[in-house]
Amino acid sequence: MITRRHFLSMSAGALALFPFMTASRALAGAPAELALAGPPAPASLPLVRLAEQGASADLPAMTMKQWRNPDIMRAWLISGEVQVSAGPANAAAILYNKGLPIRLLDVNNGGILSFLTRDPSIQKFTDIKGKKVLLFFRGDTPDTIVRYLAAKQGINPDSDLTVSYADSPFEALQMFLSGRADTVLLPEPAATAAVLKAKVSGSKPTRIVIQDEWQAVTGNALPLPLGGTMCQASLATEHPETVAALQTGIGRAVDWINAHPAEAAQQSADFFGLKAPVLQKSLEAFPIRRSPAAEARKDLEFYYQALMEMSPKLVGGKLPDKAFYLG
C-alpha cells in the first residue's frame, strides 16, 4: 500500500501547524482521511501522486491501494473501505444505475488499449478476422470494446475469431512474452512493457491502438473514455469542498505527470511493479487526457450507448442521469 508522507517526517515548523490544520478541517466537517484505490494503470497515477504529496489545507491525509480486478473495486466502494477509486467508467454507471451511492468525478484515457501481435499478416484491426486473439476480463469492457469494433467492421466475434481469455492484463502479458499467445490485447503500461521486452529479444510486434480504431470507426474525435475517477456519493454531498479540492488536485496532478514523465514514473514504479523507464516510455507515448465528468457527459453517453448495443448490462441497463456527473 502506498501511504502519504506523514507530517512526522516534516520540519518542526510544519509540525507546529498540524494541530491547527486538523482543527480547521474538523470545523469545516471535512473527513479526517481518505482511502483511495486504483488498478495498476495510468488512470491511477493522479491518485498516486496526490497520496504521495502529503496533507494540505484543502485535502486530508490519504492512503492509496491497488486492485487488480474490477470486482474488488466495487466491493471496496460499496463497503466504504474506499471512498475514491480510479476504474472503468462503465463500472461507475453500473453501480449508480443499481441504486448504489456512486458519483463520477472525471474521465481520462489512462490505460489505453492496444493489440500486440507477432503475426506478420496482421497489420490493421480487421486483419484479426480468422485469427486467435487473447483478451482479458471476459464479458467486461476490454472484451466488449473489441467485439463492438469487430462487429462494426463486418467481423462476427463469435464465428470469425477464436477468442481466449486471461484473468488479468498481467497474465495476458506473461502469455504473450512466453510465446503462448501471438496476438494479445493489453492496456498501458503493460503494452509498452511488452514492446520493450520484445525489442530486447530481437523482435518487433505490430501495435494496433484501440483508441485510434474507436475514433476511425465511430467518427468520434475524442479519446475513448475507458477510465475515470469515482467517489462515494456521501463524500460529494457531505463534503463538497473536499471533492472540489480533490478534482482540482487531480487536474494539477495530471498536468504535472504529463510535464514530468520521468519523475512521475519514478514516483509510481512500485505501485505498478514495473521499472520506472518502462512507465516513463508509456507516459511519453500516451500522455493522460482528463475531463471533469460533467464536461465529458456527451462523450460518455456516446460511449455508454455503444456498450449498450452489445449488452445493456454493461452500463446497468440505461444511461445515468445528470446527478451522476460531477462538475
Rank of each mutant, 00 (worst) to 15 (best):
A285K: 02
A216H: 09
A166H: 06
N258K: 12
L45S: 09
P223D: 06
I102E: 05
L8P: 00
V146I: 15
R138E: 15
V163M: 15
L326P: 02
Q232D: 12
M64T: 14
P60Y: 10
L15T: 13
A198C: 06
D160K: 04
R207N: 07
A41E: 04
N97D: 05
A89P: 03
G202T: 11
M73Y: 07
G13F: 11
L319H: 07
R4N: 11
Y303I: 05
D143N: 06
G227N: 00
R68L: 11
A294T: 00
T218S: 12
M175W: 13
M310R: 08
A253V: 04
A269Y: 04
K318M: 12
A35M: 14
S282Y: 06
F176S: 12
Q247I: 06
L326W: 08
I122M: 05
L196H: 07
G110T: 00
H6W: 09
L319G: 10
N108V: 04
N90Y: 05
E188Y: 03
K132T: 13
L161C: 15
K132I: 11
L177M: 15
P240N: 00
V200Y: 09
A91W: 04
T126D: 12
E171V: 15
P287T: 06
R68W: 02
P187D: 05
I102T: 01
T183V: 01
V243K: 00
Y165N: 14
G38D: 10
K132P: 07
A198Q: 14
G316M: 02
A26S: 14
N69G: 00
E241M: 02
T248Y: 13
V184M: 01
F176K: 03
T206R: 02
N69L: 08
P31D: 13
Q215C: 09
T126L: 06
T117Y: 03
I257V: 14
A296S: 09
E284S: 04
V195P: 02
K204T: 14
F136L: 13
A28W: 05
D160S: 12
L77H: 01
E301S: 03
T218N: 03
A12D: 10
V315T: 12
S168C: 12
R289E: 07
A150Q: 10
L173Y: 09
L15G: 13
A194C: 07
Q153G: 14
A253C: 10
L319I: 15
M73E: 13
S9F: 09
L34F: 13
T63D: 13
P187L: 04
P70F: 07
K152I: 12
P187I: 11
D71K: 09
E52T: 15
G317P: 07
T248V: 14
S114Q: 01
K298S: 11
P169A: 12
K322I: 10
T192S: 05
M21G: 10
K281F: 03
G327D: 15
A259C: 10
G154M: 13
Q83M: 14
I210N: 03
A193F: 11
S168F: 13
R103I: 00
L50Y: 02
A51C: 15
L307F: 05
P240R: 04
D58I: 01
E81D: 09
